[in-house]
Simulated scan of single mutants.
Amino acid sequence: MALVIGPSRVGKTTLIRLLEERLLAQAKSQMERDASFIPFASITAAGPNASRFDWRTYYRAILRGLQDPFVDGKIARIRERELREAMETALLQRRPIALIVDEAHHLAKTSSGRYLQDQLDHLKYFENLTGVSHLLVGTYELRPFRKINAQLACRSVDIHFPRYDAAHEEEAQAFRSVLWALQRQLPVEQEPQLVDQWEFLYARSIGCVGLVKMHLNRALALALTEKKKTVTLSHLRKTALPEARVELALRDALESETELAETAGADERLLTLLGLRGSRPASSQQMQEKDQSSSPSSALRPGKRGPGRDEIGGGVSSDEQDRAG
């Protein structure tokens, strides 16, 4: 299982289209020899009811991607188990290289009380049964998928698809090149000088090309409405995203980039945990047992009797003995 993670509008869907083209080109000869072979199935996890994830919709989408002729037929209602078995059979027969799932972060949205680990265990079961790998593509909401448990963490590969980071000159130059290509494609009489405004466009897009394109579409619509010959800085400013929205997206990106980046000293920290550097740190269970053993034995819960016998007779005062006599 592979996780392709990046900010919204960074170009992940475009990456999927390029991957599909490459898979088709590589599998062309095999498809000509074997008519049953389909190199991939590409679906979107977010359906019409995007507030929750539904396995029935997921199974049907894969069956459509594998060109099942009966999935949309006018037949009686099919139970979820039957849909799952049909999908498993189709995967075994079609033998795709991969299942590509866009908007995969919607897997975490459930309506039946299933936890995220249950969803990923479900996918792992399909991979074990059919031998077909899942390529899950989504926003930074996919981050929890990476560490849901030790087994899944070791079975998956993370692929970070980041935004352009203009703090590095080579990436700033690449971003300017993108703007140069986009300004040549705008349908206006005079080519706008977007490269001259690259810092403003970068700030309002945080380096995500998809956000740049949406911004340019809004600015172009305004320029055409005003019957202007080109897109000006005024058009760009009037149609830019508000600072509060941009800051929200930027903070999420910065936090996610920090989590996904491996900091210096990772090898030494792992070797220390393995006991090869100094003393091995105590586990949480060992620390708990140590705390319990070091607590005073006299610290008893209220109402709980201490160990041993109660004293008999010795605790009666002399006044009580005289009255009793």
Rank of each mutant, 00 (worst) to 15 (best):
I148D: 02
G210L: 11
F40S: 02
V195A: 11
S256I: 01
A76I: 07
D310M: 11
A45M: 04
E82R: 15
A244H: 14
T13D: 10
E257W: 02
Q30L: 03
T272S: 11
N128E: 13
A240L: 00
E170F: 15
I100N: 05
G278R: 01
Q119T: 11
R22D: 12
A244Q: 07
G278F: 02
V4G: 01
R95Y: 08
L201C: 02
D252I: 08
Y59M: 12
L116E: 04
Q190T: 15
R305N: 14
R79E: 12
Q288A: 15
D34C: 06
E247G: 10
R22M: 06
A244E: 08
E247D: 12
A153M: 12
L194N: 01
L19S: 06
E80H: 05
L241I: 01
A166P: 14
E243Q: 13
A223W: 00
S42Y: 06
S279D: 11
A172T: 08
P39F: 03
Q285C: 09
Q67K: 14
A172H: 10
R84G: 10
E88S: 07
L236V: 07
S112R: 06
R237A: 10
N49T: 04
L152A: 04
A41P: 02
G131N: 12
H122M: 10
E257R: 01
R17D: 14
D322E: 05
G315T: 07
E20L: 07
Q286C: 04
V316T: 09
A223H: 03
R33Q: 04
A153R: 12
Y115N: 14
A261C: 07
L91K: 03
E268R: 11
R155D: 05
L273A: 13
S284R: 15
S295R: 13
S294R: 10
R155H: 07
G65Y: 00
L182H: 07
A76K: 14
A76N: 07
S234G: 15
Y58N: 06
A90V: 05
P162Q: 06
Q173W: 11
T258S: 09
D310H: 05
G210Y: 09
T89K: 12
I312K: 12
N49K: 01
G314N: 13
F145D: 03
L254I: 06
K109Q: 08
M87Q: 01
L211K: 14
L250A: 09
T139P: 02
N149G: 03
D322S: 15
L15W: 11
R79L: 11
R184H: 06
L83F: 10
A172N: 08
G275T: 08
G138F: 06
V316I: 15
D165G: 09
I78H: 01
A90G: 00
